[in-house]
Design a protein around this nucleic acid. Structure first.
Lengths: 258, 258
DNA sequence: CGAAATTTTGATCACGTTCAACTTCAGTGG
DNA sequence: CCACTGAAGTTGAACGTGATCAAAATTTCG
């Protein structure tokens, strides 16, 4: 069995590797190392907690299928979703780096994940700096999404926010091959969306209706179909900045000088 | 003069190294390598742009003195500050990883920065994986601040936001030795603060007044003095999660097994 | 000292929340 | 098979918060 895996290793592909390949070259050897980190695969059902605010967390989970939300619940009962996680994303990236997680993560759908120990991952990073850099890249990419969300919530109108959110999610899903050019599955409730965008459910619903009335999209069966993606992009001030690739190491002739 | 610096290298200390030391051990050799990356030091005056939205950016700047803001201006003229940068922070961390920066950075005060080339830094990361991991840590820490800001803007009331923002800034400044236990210099205008918190200037001003009236703080001479920090923390739901240290590499007895 | 930026205060009003009811739909058991 | 249940989506009315606009007061700086 392990032998079989070893042979197929060069073609091993998951949403996570698909995503990585956008900014780093992975040799068959790299892939094997990555593959070797996985301790086990797990199924998580909808509504199950993956990480609980306040508890330690020492695993990294790579999402193969399904979506999750990272959120915080405040004393007054309000909830803010800080991040919607999709296939190719890593659960526990911020949580594992802290003594105890400061956000919870809940499965929005049934999920399939691959789990690895944080220490093991870090250890491989020492041997393969490329991985450590990839980790930085992932964190930076995530930071960009967060920044975009801050702009959304802070200064964009509700309808712009919604449009921007849908476009960004669509682009992310495209990156891992989980969306068509003008449509994608959106298996999340309006409550989650409103908690993501800092809106009330009724208002989110109204904005959604408005986008529908303006013939920019169709929502049906937990699926979004863009009917006028250009108009949406204009409305949302959407600009997709692409992450640069990680530079390869240059040869070290003058290493001793520095 | 350079000779002097070289000799003192083991004790070389900047806000950036101070910050790093919170989660990674730096040998004199590490410090020297870091020191060697710096191409030059520069002074930037208040209101000067450090990074402009839409332009490429290939340098990393370590802030030694002063503050800056990363922001985006929208078509309607509104501005959202996504990040206030303080000594020890790195300018260009997200910008440099993209083909062109998606946010601008402006100096809020006169600043002193140390500049290094991104390629040079990345290259050292290949030789010292510890640095690459440190980069990840920094990005993750930054991500945590962003997440906290999303919660602020999305679901906290204006007064809670303000309290939270001030406490968080204070904690960050403490980490690099730029604040006293219950006070710190806040050389930024209310306009910047309101753009950070997604509020209007008049409303921010009122909230500030309210905190003053409630005897939680005193603001004078661009300086904040907490007079009831506990009350503030309760008001803001403030919880300071500490970033774990980067694990050291474990010995590689079984490396060949995996 | 004069000009510009910043802080402070006030009055008005629109937007989005809140609360509530109602609809629709999927799943479940009688 | 259909009534029952609970979750999710939709719509409406009323209220309150925070934006907007405007102007004065104060500070900063050339």
């Amino acid at each position: 069995m392990p032998g079989t895996i070893r042979k197929l290793t060069g073609r091993w592909e998951t949403p996570f590797t698909t995503r990585l390949k956008h900014f780093v070259d992975l040799t068959p050897d790299d892939l094997a190392a990555l593959r070797g980190l996985i301790e086990y695969e797990a199924l998580v059902e909808k509504r199950r907690d993956l990480v609980v605010d306040g508890y330690p967390c020492t695993k990294l989970s790579f999402i193969k299928e399904g979506m999750a939300a990272r959120y915080r619940v405040l004393r007054n009962g309000k909830r803010q979703v800080v991040d919607v996680l999709i296939p190719g994303d890593v659960v526990g990236l911020p949580g594992s780096f802290q003594d105890r997680a400061s956000f919870s993560v809940i499965a929005l759908t049934d999920m399939k994940i691959e789990v690895c120990a944080l220490d093991a991952f870090i250890n491989v990073c020492y041997r393969r700096p490329k991985f450590a850099l990839a980790l930085s890249w992932l964190a930076v990419e995530h930071g960009n999404h967060s920044a975009e969300r801050i702009v959304d919530i802070g200064r964009r109108t509700p309808i712009e926010r919604l449009a921007h959110f849908l476009l960004e999610l669509h682009r992310r899903l495209m990156m891992v091959g989980r969306a068509e050019p003008t449509a994608f599955d959106l298996p999340i409730s309006q409550e989650v969306m409103s908690d993501t965008l800092g809106l009330s459910v009724p208002h989110l619903n109204r904005m959604l209706t408005r986008l529908r009335n303006e013939r920019m999209l169709i929502v049906a069966d937990r699926r979004v179909q863009f009917t006028d993606i250009r108009a949406l992009e204009v409305l949302a001030h959407f600009q997709s900045a692409t992450l640069a690739r990680i530079p390869a190491p240059i040869q070290r002739e003058q290493e001793l000088i520095a």
